[in-house]
Design a protein around this nucleic acid. Structure first.
Lengths: 365, 365
DNA sequence: TTGAAAGCGCTAACAG
DNA sequence: CTGTTAGCGCTTTCAA
């Protein structure tokens, strides 16, 4: 058991009462002073500099004392003094946990045994007078944006939102997702062909195809998303009627419960469509529950297709058809692009467009 | 469109080529120099100090220039200079995404319209020679630990692990979860009564009760968890035989797939238990799928109970019985404790123990 | 092999 | 009302 007093700070003392008083962390200077060496020496040792800058004897003493005193580096100070932060920020919209859970997981897999650390943040849409802000002003060496959404009404004057952000953040950025900004390095996912295929698949057997959407038709948000326009196109192509079941996305309402109730109500009032396409898989899962609540069967009474390709789909009964977002490939490419730009800032723009794929399972018949 | 050159740094220029060169962010000094005022003045304005420290005219000019130049504060520097970081770290084990997703979500709800920002981190079990480390050395004003797991074999010498961490981190900590450290402020969740109730419920109707576990029996990890000992107790009480189906938890294996395959194999080789208790809900969901794969029915052939109480449970068919972890209450209390300790460091220890509750749904008959 | 000192961007006390 | 200055913890160059 180690304990002691140092400049009025107590360290490594095994009683809660004493520890409460200790507001400050141990600094390099503390360690240095204890050993009668200079802070620089401690820095050399703790940074594991190569060569014989420091004698073995000193190195040993420093290491031991740092450990004993419970020294922890102050990363903020390190960065201020010019070290790399070794942090990559991943900015994801916090809503739709299942989808973003898989996005995060896919990126985390890129960061195992990787000198960089991944820091997850959410975009800040509240900063008024500013743009939908990404990054939280803590040091980072690079930023990955997943589906930054910049509708005209939020950022009317930003002709080049990506470049804009780069200029303010001063670090490389890669934009990813179906809303990828395309004036900086990006990995875009194209949903359209798969959505069209999904809807055609439904249209081949259905008389009424409904769309469980995020926003009402004719709103800007709804139309800047690729799903609704594709739905509209195919429904027209097959001479069917548009049926939108609107289910908002918000932190205040438990999404699945809300969707389940909304869909149930819609079916009770309007009868049951024999095909339903959903904005995402979470809504498809809630729709499946709603349909079951009413004693109806999937796919016999309603054919169902979702979007995203979350793992959960294959655990439902029946397993859910979906449009598969290429989580791993997006993460792999995004990190490859970002890493390369960090190493060689001057290389030309890097970009890729991946196709989402329709995966048919039992829920669509 | 704004653009210009300043000390060789270009700012807010609308072409990618130019922006690529701009590695540094705009600093307060940059803004000050441009305006021929002192950095301190800029600092006053940007920190919105009260009173008439700065003339309206100056304030206006500073604000406009900062905006134009795209100034963003350097939080690391602010903290180093003595400001609060306004960051609270939440440390969660990254595995078991569904459970931790809900933990995180519950905490995030405590931080809306809260001056503090929540930063999610994972514990670092890789730092050898050290203890299972929480916190990542970036500035923070407080730390919430969710289920820090400190088995004796990992931290043999730490008689007071909680106090130990406090002493090294120098910020208030609240420990939460079923493994809550209890020598510092904590919110503990007691699973035992609910687990026993669950197992008794199964035992009332079953001849063979299996436990889908994390580790093999007799391992230290398995026995330091409350589930297995409770299972053992009840199985003995009812004169039944122990049946463990071991399903490891690792980043390398997709958990559900692995569990599904393992359970299926177990049933094929050993016949089907008529009651299964699972370590967590994800395993219960995978078990449900495995049972279905074999043409068996829940609850007719097998009664099934999971643990955690994730939202997904109610969307499965049949809905899954579970032991409900009080996500919201844990988050609420933890934040209350932490906030109070930040404001008044000297108050006596705060603690609470919450009871998890058995929630019976169709899967258990 | 080690120490002294400057400086990173910012805040806050103090001086003018 | 505004500027000067010291210092936060650390890295790194230069000197000893």
């Amino acid at each position: 058991m180690v304990g002691g007093v140092l400049d009025g700070k107590r360290f490594a003392v095994h009683t809660l009462l004493l520890i409460r008083k200790m507001a400050r962390k141990i600094s390099m200077a503390d360690v240095a002073r204890q050993l009668n060496v200079s802070p620089a020496t401690v820095s050399y040792v703790l940074n594991g500099r190569e060569g014989t800058l420091v004698s073995d004897r000193t190195r040993e003493r420093v290491l031991e004392m740092a450990q004993q005193m419970g020294y922890r580096p102050n990363r903020a100070a390190q960065v201020l003094a010019g070290k790399r932060s070794n942090v990559i920020e991943l900015c994801v919209n916090g809503f739709n946990p299942a989808f973003y859970g898989q996005v995060i997981h896919a990126f985390q897999n890129q960061f195992v045994a990787n000198p960089y650390q991944l820091r997850i943040v959410n975009p800040d849409y509240t900063r008024e007078g500013d743009w939908p802000f990404v990054g939280n002003d803590w040091p980072m060496d690079g930023l990955i944006i997943s589906d930054a959404y910049f509708p005209e009404s939020i950022a009317p004057s930003l002709a080049y939102p990506g470049a804009h952000i780069v200029s303010k953040l001063g670090v490389p950025i890669v934009s990813t997702g179906i809303f990828a900004i395309t004036d900086i390095d990006y990995v875009r996912v194209d949903l359209v062909p798969a959505i069209e295929a999904a809807l055609r698949h439904l249209a081949a057997n259905c008389k009424r195809i409904a769309y469980v959407s995020l926003w009402p038709a004719h709103t800007e948000a709804e139309n800047s998303d690729p799903r609704y326009p594709a739905y509209q196109r195919i429904v027209r192509e097959f001479g069917l009627k548009e049926e939108l079941i609107v289910t908002y996305d918000s932190r205040d309402v438990p999404l699945r419960e809300f969707t389940r109730a909304t869909v149930r109500k819609y079916i009770e009032e309007n009868g049951c469509p024999d095909g339903i396409f959903c904005y995402n898989d979470e809504r498809a899962i809630a729709t499946l529950a709603a349909v079951r609540d009413l004693g109806l069967k999937v796919p016999e009474d309603v054919r169902l297709i979702g979007c995203d390709g979350i793992e959960e789909n294959t655990y439902h009964n029946p397993p859910l058809s979906t449009i598969q977002y290429p989580f791993d490939e997006v993460a792999r490419l995004a990190w490859e692009f970002l890493n390369r730009r960090i190493e060689e800032p001057e290389i030309p723009m890097q970009s890729a467009t991946l196709q989402a794929e329709l995966v048919l399972r039992e829920s669509s018949g």
